[in-house]
Structures are given as C-alpha cells and as structure tokens.
C-alpha cells in the first residue's frame, strides 16, 4: 500500500490552516484522525497534492456544556466521547454510539468532525447528530457558519462544507425533562461499518413525548432523518402501538440497497425492529431518570 506523493503541512493555528487550504483548496485535504482519508490514499482512490494536518491546532478538542449546548470540538476522538462522564450522564445516544464505532485503534484516532465531513452514509455520527438536532460549526475565509446537521449532510460522501472551509465544532442541544437515548447497530463483526444503525433520542414530559429524534445509518445515500416517524411520536403518550407505528414509518423512510450486508427488505425490517427496541429502551431510561429526580 503505497500512496502517491503529497505535500504535508501541520500548522498550529486555524488561520494558518485556512490559509494553506485556501491556496489550492481543490487539491488539498484536511487531515484529522486519518481513519478514512489514509485508507483512501493508500488505495490510491484519493491523491491530493497537499494534506493540512489540523491535529496540532489547540482548542479543537473542547468538550463542554455552554449556552444551552454541548460543544464538541471537531478533533474530539470517538474514544474521548465514549469515555467522557458528562456525555455518559447527559447524552446517552452519543455515549451508546461511540463505543460501537469501528475498533479501539480507530476510535483512538478517528474524530467526530472528520466523520461528519467525510459524509459516509454508513457513518454512525451522522445519525446520532440527526436524532439530536445538532449543528455543525465551520470556519472559512469569510468567517463562521452554523449549519444544521440535516443541511450539512447532502449525499454520499458529499456535505455542504465548501472546499476552503474547516469544521471546528459540533453543537448538540442540551436535553430537557427526563430523557433517554440509544444507538442500535447491526454489524457483521466488531469494527465493521453498520449494516443498519438506528439512533434514538426521547425527551418525556410525564409519559408524553416532548421531543423525539431519530436517525438512520447505512440505509440511504446519506444518514436519514425519518421526520414522519418523529412527528408521529411527538406530543403523544408512550405506548407499544405508538412505537410500532413510528417504527413502521421509519422503515418507510429508509431507502436501503441490497448488497453484501443483506437485501434491502432485510435492512428495512431491521430498521423497524431496532426503532421499536430503541424507543422502548429510551423510554425506560427516561422513566428511570424521572424516577430518580
């Protein structure tokens, strides 16, 4: 595995990184954890002239709550999110997804920003962020933009990020009321990309669903937000029938293709099964949380 020749720079400020990127944006790639980019280079599927390594830029790995959000720096590693106690207490969907991504080696290096910027419909973070209604913060030559995740993800390996922009952080709204969440992932083995993944987030007011968020992995040309299912849940009381109906709607929103991981009909069936199971789990968590307070 021998990549083509490339230039490499490792600036220690964001401005410098943006400047290097700006010089030949169409031939330059940002290098974060390298867990998607380096395989592409080694297989010679990608041959950028220059890599801008952002790992030495301070401050890009923040992880804190402020102004009603959880701020996740773009360089937050999957493992950091898996191990963080604030995330563990308050963001169960994130905490549940993180350890299911790839394997420990990849999780030590792979970043949330890199994962979202890569735009892989089989990436797990896209669905989690859709369920949580997150926003992606990006910086470019003309300043900063905040892009709702649903607008950020466009198509397979395509986002609304411009070539000369860098993702700096992800903002996740803080949960309200009693909440619960889960990420259910069907994989052929540990370290595999999802055959199907389902992200679930619920906020309850008593037993009424104040907010429901769902995201689907690997069943379309991008991560899917099944809004019909979310809408069906919102404002209603938790019940098995309601969850079954939402699961049916989510399966309808899924648009999988048949491939080595299984036929499309199968993937749809798994979406349905997982949405049902995920909602039940999120509800149980929320009830348990309500019981504690």
């Amino acid at each position: 595995m021998f990549p083509s020749r490339f230039d490499y720079s490792a600036p220690d400020s964001l401005d410098e990184a943006l400047a290097t990127l700006g010089q030949r944006a169409d031939e330059t790639k940002v290098l974060a954890g390298g867990q998607s980019l380096i395989p592409l280079l080694k297989l010679r599927f990608a041959a950028p002239a220059t890599l801008v390594d952002i790992n030495r830029i301070p401050g890009l790995d923040v992880l804190e709550e402020s102004n009603g959000h959880l701020r996740i720096g773009t360089l937050a590693r999957h493992n950091q999110l898996a191990a963080d106690s604030l995330v563990g207490r308050r963001y169960p969907t994130i905490a549940s997804a993180a350890p299911q991504i790839a394997d420990p080696l990849v999780r030590n290096l792979g970043t949330i920003g890199g994962s979202l910027a890569h735009g892989d419909p089989a990436g797990d973070w896209g669905s989690v962020m859709l369920a949580l209604n997150a926003e992606v913060v990006v910086r470019g030559p003309t300043g900063e933009r905040r892009i709702p995740i649903d607008d950020f993800l466009v198509d397979i390996f395509t986002t609304s990020l411009n070539e000369d922009e860098i993702v700096t952080e992800v903002l996740v709204p803080q949960p309200e009321g009693s909440f619960g969440g889960a990420y259910l992932k069907l994989e052929r083995k540990v370290g595999d990309f999802a055959t199907v993944g389902v992200a679930v987030h619920l906020e309850l007011d008593g037993d009424t669903i104040a907010r429901a968020g769902l995201g689907l992995t690997a069943v379309g040309s991008r991560n899917i937000k099944p809004t019909n299912a979310e809408n069906a849940l919102g404002g209603n009381k938790c019940s098995d029938e309601l969850f079954a109906e939402a699961a049916r709607l989510a399966a309808e929103a899924a648009d999988p293709v048949s491939d080595v991981r299984g036929p499309a009909t199968y993937k749809r069936a798994v979406v349905e099964a997982y949405v049902k199971r995920g909602l039940a789990e999120a509800r149980d968590q929320a009830r348990a949380r309500a019981g504690r307070t």
Binding site: G262, P263, Y266
Partner: peptide, 8 residues
Amino acid sequence: VTSAKVWQ
C-alpha cells in the same frame, strides 16, 4: 450464515 440469511 449471515443474520440476513437467517432472517430471510
């Protein structure tokens, strides 16, 4: 014997 085949 993948899960997909068992389901199918």
